[in-house]
Structure formats: structure tokens, C-alpha cells
Simulated assay, not measured.
Amino acid sequence: MPDTLCLWLRHETRPNEHRAALVPADARRLVEAGIRLTVEESTQRVFPVHEYASVGCQIAPQNSWPSRCPAQGYVLGLKELPDLPARLRPRHIFFGHAYKGQTGAEALLRRFEAGGGVLLDLESLVDADGRRLAAFGHWAGYAGASLAVLHRRGRLVAPLARLSRPELDERLRCSVAGESLTAVVIGAHGRSGRGACEALRTAGVEPSRWNSAETRCLDRDALLAHDILVNAIGTSVPVGPFLTEEDLYDPRRRLSVIGDVTCDVGSRLNALPIHDRATDWEHPVERLCRRPTALDVIALDNLPSLLPAEASRAFSAELWPLLLELREDSPVWERCLNAFRRAAGSLTDE
């Protein structure tokens, strides 16, 4: 390890990605600990760059990491990298979504292979028991359930725009006269599930909370009898489908909105194979069928960006102490590295 640890917080190139892996207050903590922290300018990050400069960070132009990040540094981000450079180096920390057979996973791993770089995937930042140590789950669940409720009430406005929690909560509390909504959250005990339940309660909807006991012998009739389904499971092994094509056309179906927070589309872990692509901020809702009644799905894979300030602060609070351990041979980061090595080692020769 170099004497001075170099971290480079990159600009997020994905449209509508307003979050930051590190917020200015926690960036200060790292700078005070002796870490050299460079922050790229960004036209969309919820925290202005001058707030990072004021706590001692160096500032660089956006998207300058390919040419300016030190060879022994770490490029820190959240969502996917731009298509170039084709050869990736040095070391990157972000949500790579590359270990479950997702679309584009092999191409990303081959870019690291070509450049000799390393991916320390934030999804693999876990303790010895496999529990995630830094995650956006709570706010993903909160945003996903909120959008489902707003859509069910006919009050979801597209394209989506980022909000503060007070703004979103004000919208959730505006219920429809005479309304009696029912909702089920699958994976209710996890981070995302707890966030979803909190949002539903804010909206005046007391959810049914399902977990592994309820899905082990799934009661589809009971599931279809709800107005809203929020899928918030976290799993590393395939599970049986919660809904099938046949269920969509069941004449008894009351279910009209699915909030797919987990959004494992394109993966063998997808528990909702009735849809196969994510939605986006311009078109957040996809109609799955019209009969016997309309059934829609919301499947955004960057839900916490709807509440970027709250989500970033919560995530950064969990991440910054772990970044201090990059100075040492930490078991936490060693597990991340080993996960990357296993995935890269599984690539076949072209």
C-alpha cells in the first residue's frame, strides 16, 4: 500500500443519478485521517463541489479519472462506468452488478481483465456472515413503495424528479377519499423491506409483511388479493417465481401495481420473471397486461436517487469507516477482492 491512500470520487455519468458515495461531512473525516481525496466536478450530484473543496478535497474536472487518477489510487463511484476506456485500471469501488450473470456483466469483467484493473464491488462489501455493511436498501424500499402508492392513486408524475423526504411524504399523505388500499411487502424484514413498510405506513397503508416463511409455500391467491406488491427480497440463490404469466390473467386478481425494488431483471435470481427489463425515469411504469384489470410494474434500478440527499448521507455514514481500512489488509476488502477474482476466473477464453 502507498503511504498516502488516494481516493478519487468520480462524477456519475448515468442520467438522473444524483447520489454520492461520500457526502462532504464524511469526506472531511477521511481528509482529516490523512487520505488524499479528489472529487470530480459534477453537473448532477446533489452536493455541490464547493462543499467538498471546503473540507479539504482536491477538485478535478468531471470524467478525468481515466487519465488523472494515480496508478495506486481507488476510483470510487456508485453506478456503471462509461463505455470508455475499454481497458480498466486501476482499482474501482462501485456497484458493478457483475457476479449474478446480469446483462453486461461479462463485458465489464473483460474490461478489467484487459486493463489489469480490479473491481471491489460494493455488493460484496459484507461481514463474515455475508451481511451487507454499506447499502442503500432502506431508501430503495422507501422510494419503490412510494412510487407504487402514488401510481395506484393516479398521482405519479413522469418524468420523475429528485425530491427531499418532506416533499415525498407530503405527497404520500394525500390519500384518496374513501380509499382502502392493501399492500404486501415480500422481504419485509430486510433493509429494503423495512423501508418499504415505513413508506406505506406514511401513506396510511398498513402492509402485510411476508418473508421466507410465507414464500416457502406461497399463497398466490392471498398475494393476488392485494392492490400493491412490493418485491424487496435479497437473495444469492434462485427462488421460485412469485408470479407467473398465468397469474396475470387470473380473473380473481386484484393486484394492480408491482414495485420491484429488488429489480433482478436479466438475472437467474429474478423472482418476477413476468417482466424482463428495468423501467426508467422518463417511463417509470410498464404495463404488463390489461385484462382482467390493468397490472403495472415499476422497476427502477436506482430508486434511492429519488431521495439523493437522505440516501447518500445514510450510505456514506456506513461506508467511510470501511474506507479507512483500505490502508490495511482488511478481511472486509479481502472478501470483495476474492469475489472479483472468482468472477474474473470464471470467464472463458474467447
Score class of each variant (00 low, 15 high):
Ile93Arg: 06
Ser164Met: 09
His151Asn: 14
Leu84Cys: 03
Tyr99Asp: 02
Arg131Ile: 01
Ala271Tyr: 06
Leu319Phe: 06
Arg155Asn: 11
Leu200Glu: 09
Leu78Cys: 07
Pro90Asp: 02
Thr38Glu: 03
Ala143Phe: 11
Val46Gly: 00
Asp127Asn: 15
Pro15Met: 15
Ala114Asp: 11
Phe315Leu: 13
Ala98Asn: 03
Gly77Met: 06
Leu326Asp: 09
Gly34Lys: 08
Ala299Asp: 03
Cys197Ile: 10
Thr103Ser: 12
Val297Leu: 03
Ala25Asp: 14
Gln102Glu: 15
Cys174Arg: 15
Ala343Val: 11
Tyr142Arg: 02
Gly190Val: 05
Val39Phe: 10
Ser192Cys: 15
Ala161Pro: 00
Glu310Asp: 14
Val257Ala: 06
Ser180Cys: 15
Lys100Gln: 11
Glu246Ser: 10
Asp349Gly: 07
Asp129Leu: 11
Arg87Phe: 00
Asn211Gly: 11
Glu246Ile: 07
Gly266Leu: 12
Gln72Cys: 12
Arg132Cys: 04
Leu347Tyr: 09
Trp139Pro: 02
Val261Trp: 09
Arg342Phe: 12
Val23Trp: 00
Ser312Pro: 06
Cys174Ile: 10
Ala27Trp: 08
Ala60Trp: 10
Met1Phe: 13
Ala299Ser: 14
Lys100Gly: 02
Gly116Trp: 14
Leu160His: 07
Cys289Gln: 00
Leu295Glu: 01
Ser346Gly: 08
Trp65Pro: 05
Ala311His: 04
Gly96Trp: 04
Glu282Lys: 03
Pro241Asn: 13
Thr262Arg: 07
Pro331Glu: 13
Gly178Asn: 11
Arg191Phe: 04
Thr262Gln: 08
Arg335Gly: 14
Ala105Gln: 06
Pro304Lys: 02
Val261Asp: 01
Glu325Asn: 13
Ala232Asp: 04
Arg335Ser: 14
Arg327Ser: 11
Cys57Lys: 10
Ala222Gln: 13
Arg341Ala: 15
Ile186Glu: 03
Thr279Asp: 01
Ser42Glu: 02
Arg253Tyr: 14
Ser208His: 03
Ile233Met: 12
Cys69Tyr: 06
Leu160Gln: 01
Pro15Ser: 14
Gly193Met: 04
Ile298Asn: 00
Gly77Gln: 08
Ile93Glu: 03
Ser192Lys: 08
Arg45Ala: 07
Trp210Met: 00
Thr38Asp: 01
Arg341Val: 13
Ile298Glu: 00
Ser256Tyr: 11
Ala343Tyr: 12
Ala203Cys: 08
Gln44Tyr: 02
Arg173Leu: 10
Leu81Val: 09
Val55Gln: 10
Arg155Tyr: 02
